[in-house]
Each structure stands twice: as C-alpha cells, then as structure tokens.
C-alpha cells in the first residue's frame, strides 16, 4: 500500500503539487490523468524521490520513504518513462540487467531473469538479447523499457507516459500487455497519462489532477456519474459520456437470468460493444455466454440504455 500524505512541491513562488493526499491499494493499477503542467509527473516522481517533496510524506507499506537513501529506495521500485531512457550504449540484455546487477544478483540469476523477461514480452532472447536499442522498433523498445523496469521484481511500478511515443495500434497492444502483467504478478502500478481514454481503460482507479491539485480519485464509473469538480466533468464528459460509462462494464457483470433470442455475446464484452452488436443486428436483447461457451444469461437493449442514462 502506498499512502501519500499532504504532499506539496513548490519551486520558488509556484506550487507544482498542492497538498495531495491519496491511498493506493496494493495490486491495483492507478492512473493519474491531467493536462500538461498539472503536476501529475511531479507527483509520480515524488514517490521514488526523483523529486524531493517540499512538505508531506510518502509511506510505502507503512514505512516512510525517506528512511533510506533515495537510490536504495529506487532500486525497489520499477520506473519506466516516455522515450524510455534505454541506455543506447548497452545491449537489450544489459539494459534489462541494470537493477538486478545493482542489487548484486549472481550472473546466472541475472541472465535467467533477462531470458524470462524477454520471453514474457515476446522477444526471442537469441535474437534480441545482444541487440542495441537503436536496432529495435518503437514497440520493441517500449517492451524492453517495461521489462527493464520489472527486472528486479518490484512490488511497485511507476510509469510516466510509457506509451506516449507509440502509434495507436501498437499502443493498444502495449496496454493489453500491461494489463496482463499487472494481473499476473499483482504489481501495484501507478501510471501517469494525459490521455483520458488510456486512464479509463487501464485504471482500477483514476486520479484527476489540475494545477497541482488532486480533484478526484475514484473508480472510473464514479468519475463519470459523480464528478466532484466541473473540471472533472469537462475532462470526462464530452458527448460520449454514456458510451464511456457503458464501456466500463462487461456483459457478464450485469447479465440477467434466462436466455433470449438474439445474438450471442461474450461475458467479457463491454456493454458499449454489446450495444453496437444489438444495433447492428437490429435485436432487442443478446444472450451472454461464459468463458466455456455456455449461456449464462442475457442483457436487453432497454437495460443497457438505462445504464447509459446513469451518466446524467
């Protein structure tokens, strides 16, 4: 668990982060979203003390982060940034091995970990371990950047616009991979982005920042249905607010008992996509099938519309 307690950062007259407090539950993904200059990156960088707070404190599993030297703290926390900061003079394997070597792992353990991570990120170790970063595509570099951040099996991973430089298709793939990794290893991830869709798609909880202040920190649906601030409403609510809300819920979560005539939809499909399917087929209801392909219930057009209206 990460507790951020009344954190402030001032540079001279200007306050970049203004009295932010929040609690981040373990094994969740929190996204911090805001415009540029909102203080979101500074907030993130205060967690691993790349920026020292002017006042306030950060507790990591109950321990004050200032209790140990900053560089030791950082070796326990994964860190990935936009542009990745891969070391251009080191091979992919050496890049990934950075923190394990700093921690004094044995050579065999380091190389086993590098191989394991390369395979996890679908990079053939025989082909890629000895390559230099400039020999990789953007998407591959991004995967190496995340692999490097995860190398020493940190419990916490901080990411600052990690997908900012990727084009949309690779970006979606990278987001899926990250979700998969988060579920698989239970890593606590805090990810900063300026993209509200990315924030909604990835975050168990979304923190909205503006002008150094934390406006709202809540579940995505709550941000849509109960915005705490006009800015949050403006940020989340363009014309497709209802569709955004529908995309946060899967068919399996709201399926009613009984089977109806109509198209079959997967339990994991978002209500937004179910709606699209119903519009496409001209049907009024759809049968929801579970992971094993058996029908587990149904959703009706009317119930979806009713849920979408909650956004008002």
């Amino acid at each position: 668990m990460i507790q951020i307690d009344k954190l402030c950062k001032r540079y001279g007259e200007s306050t970049v982060v203004d009295d932010v407090s929040m609690v981040i539950e373990p094994r969740t993904m929190t996204t911090i979203v805001g415009t540029s200059g909102s203080g979101k990156s500074t907030l993130l960088r205060m967690i691993n003390r790349l920026v020292e707070p002017t006042s306030g404190r950060v507790l990591l599993d109950g321990n004050d982060t200032t209790a140990e030297p900053a560089y030791l703290l950082r070796r326990r926390i994964g860190y990935a940034i936009q542009g990745l900061g891969l070391f251009p003079h080191r091979t992919v394997a050496d890049n990934i091995a950075t923190v394990p070597r700093l921690l004094g792992w044995s050579a065999e353990r380091v190389s086993a970990r590098v191989t394991e991570l390369l395979e996890l990120f679908q990079l053939d170790p025989g082909l890629y371990a000895a390559k230099y970063p400039h020999e990789l595509s953007g998407g591959q570099q991004q995967r190496v950047g995340v692999a490097r951040a995860l190398a020493a099996k940190p419990n916490v991973l901080l990411m600052d616009e990690p997908f900012g430089a990727l084009d949309p298709i690779i970006r979606t793939k990278a987001q899926d991979d990250l979700l998969g990794i988060q579920r698989r290893f239970g890593t606590t991830i805090i990810l900063v982005t300026h993209d509200i869709d990315e924030a909604f798609r990835l975050g168990d909880r979304v923190a909205v920042m503006s002008q150094g202040r934390l406006l709202q920190h809540d579940r995505p649906a709550a941000l849509l249905t109960q915005p705490a601030d006009p800015f949050v409403a403006q940020l989340t609510g363009s014309g497709d607010k209802s569709l955004k809300l529908l995309s946060l819920t899967t068919a399996g979560e709201v399926a009613d008992q009984g089977i109806v005539t109509g198209p079959n939809v997967s339990w994991s499909m978002s209500l937004r996509n179910v709606l699209a399917e119903l519009v496409w087929c001209g049907a009024a209801a759809a049968t929801v099938v579970g992971p094993d392909g058996d029908p587990i219930g149904h959703v009706t057009l009317a119930s979806i519309l009713a849920r979408g209206r909650q956004a008002r």
Partner: peptide, 26 residues
C-alpha cells in the same frame, strides 16, 4: 539523452554510477 539519465536515476543508480556507467561512456 536526458531520458537515459532520468531512467538511470529512477532505477536507483547513484550519481557516481550514472557518471561512470552512463554519461562518460556515452
């Protein structure tokens, strides 16, 4: 690249390590 130095700092390299392992070689 400032990103490389920032990443190095973020991963817990000390100032001396950053100079010796990242900045001077580059």
């Amino acid at each position: 690249s400032p990103a490389a130095v920032d990443a190095a700092r973020g991963m817990g390299l000390t100032a001396g390590q950053i100079l010796r392992q990242i900045e001077l070689p580059l």
